[in-house]
Simulated assay, not measured.
Amino acid sequence: MITLQLIGIGTGNPAHLTGEAVAALNAADLILVPRKENAPDLADLRRSICAAVLTRPVSIAEFDMPVRAGEDYIQAVHDWHDAIAAAWTAAFHAHLPCGGTAALLVWGDPSLYDSTLRIAARLAGAAVRVVPGITSIQALTAAHAIPLNPLAGAVTITTGRMVRSHGWPPGADTLVVMLDGGCAFQTLDPQGIRIWWGAYLGMEQQALDHGPLAEAGPRIVAARPALRARHGWIMDVYLLRKEPL
């Protein structure tokens, strides 16, 4: 029997791991570390987190992360998830042939706009345990010292793809936009909208900007490629709020 622990690691700062997450990593028999050809620093970051919190030797197995391919987005994602599940299974067979506990470090929290739980559901006979982490939303609002919601207002959590396709959701006062590599806020009428943006939240290279969307938006669009070039990768999130009329 394999038990897979999905451990939320926040935005990559070892100080953001909960005590439960640290205990789970130290109790594991194996830690899985995915390697991405276009973002090798992310594997390095996972290794540094392990080095910072492990108090006993734990085997670490690295695997090459499959690449999503295909024009049909939904089918491509399903095929991609199947390939990732197969890579995990191969690692279990190679390193835990008699069973045991494996751990996978997940950015943010495994429940929020992350497919790790859907991939884990493809593992036949494996038990899955989730250790929640600090989400990028918590890190963003903390970095800017703002509340998530306006007084008695609604919050919608969505993706850049949805904003680009459908615009501002009806009835929402505040949008939190995740998984947006193309600055989808550019498709919105900026009049009366403010933005709070953050990249590498909680880390030494943290970058923040905020203000009226018409003013801060172009700065963010210019900053993202420069930050990616400097660090080799970027993870960011932003909050949009309509100002009272």
Rank of each mutant, 00 (worst) to 15 (best):
I137R: 00
N13M: 03
Q191E: 15
A226T: 08
L240V: 04
G100L: 09
T3P: 01
T11R: 05
R161D: 12
V163D: 05
L213V: 07
R194G: 13
R219T: 06
I74W: 07
R241C: 13
G182A: 13
E215L: 07
G160W: 13
A222P: 02
A87L: 08
G160P: 02
L245A: 11
E204D: 13
L45G: 00
L6M: 12
P150E: 12
G192V: 04
P110F: 02
G202D: 11
A94V: 02
M235N: 09
V33M: 05
S115V: 07
V237P: 01
L4V: 09
A124G: 06
P14C: 09
D189I: 09
T116P: 02
C183P: 00
N13S: 13
H210I: 10
A121F: 06
R161Q: 12
H93V: 08
M65W: 14
Q75T: 14
H95K: 00
L54Y: 09
G12H: 07
A226C: 04
L140Q: 03
D29M: 12
R224E: 03
A94K: 06
G100D: 08
T55D: 11
Y73Q: 06
H81Q: 14
D72S: 07
W107E: 04
I74C: 01
T159W: 14
G217Q: 06
T55L: 04
G198C: 09
S111C: 11
I60Q: 10
N13V: 03
V58W: 10
A207W: 15
C183G: 00
T18W: 02
D82E: 11
H231P: 02
P97A: 05
T156F: 04
